[in-house]
Simulated assay, not measured.
Amino acid sequence: MRLPFIPTIIVVAAMATMIGLGVWQLQRKAEKEALLVQYGAAAEMLPVAWPETPDTAYLYRRATGYCLAPVSWRAIAGQNIEGEAGWRHIASCRTGGGEGPGMQAVMGWSQNFDDPEGWEGGEVTGTITLDPEYGLRLVSDEPVAGLEPVARPTPEEIPNNHLLYAIQWFFFAAAAGIVYLLALRRRLRA
């Protein structure tokens, strides 16, 4: 029996691509594990001053920054320390000189979307985490008046699903091979 050339090439190429993606996910798993170890170690380091420029090397470090004045507020979905769903209130702070990115500071949690009132700024101590819009944000240990404490960010909340993704790609490659062999078998019978 002669194998159909073009379908065989397509299936073999697809299987090779899927196996390659599975191997890549295994490599990503190792990279993510190393990153999580780095973040865990950063959480145990001595506190630093709020960085002037966003740098992911500071993620999960304890830090202190000074908010000269909150320029604006925004609310994003989040949890308080008891795990209740609601809104984290983030102050966009002026940090001095009008230069640089300033500081994004999570100043507390509430079930109300409205901006908190009355806080004029000051020293903020907490944990540095990612902010998709501004690079970094500081999650304050102490909430401002009228808000509750937010859940403290930890590296343990970062998922590492790369092993499952690798298994998924290897399964897809095996399924493609089995389906192709069944199709060849059916063709041979005909």
Rank of each mutant, 00 (worst) to 15 (best):
V71T: 12
G86D: 03
T127I: 15
A49L: 14
V106D: 10
W109T: 11
N80V: 06
M103E: 05
P51V: 03
K32G: 01
M103Q: 04
A85L: 14
T56M: 08
G177H: 10
E31S: 12
T8P: 06
L36W: 00
V23P: 03
A13R: 05
R137F: 01
V124L: 07
L26E: 05
V144R: 02
E157H: 02
L21Y: 09
E120D: 15
Y58G: 12
F5L: 15
P4T: 06
G22I: 01
G20V: 04
G22N: 03
A75M: 02
G102A: 10
M15C: 13
N160W: 07
I178Q: 04
G146Y: 10
E117N: 09
L26M: 14
I9A: 15
T53C: 00
L26V: 05
I81V: 15
R62N: 09
T53V: 15
I178E: 03
A145W: 01
R186D: 05
L130V: 11
N161T: 13
V179M: 15
A77M: 03
V12K: 00
T127E: 03
L46H: 09
G20D: 05
V139Y: 06
Y180R: 08
E99W: 13
Q27V: 09
E156L: 08
V23R: 09
A190K: 12
M1W: 10
I10D: 04
S110L: 05
Q104H: 08
R137C: 01
N161V: 13
V11F: 06
W73H: 03
A16M: 10
P51Q: 03
T129K: 02
H162F: 12
L36C: 09
A30K: 07
W109Q: 12
A77Q: 05
T129D: 14
E99C: 00
S110E: 06
R2P: 15
D131R: 01
R137A: 08
V11T: 10
R28P: 01
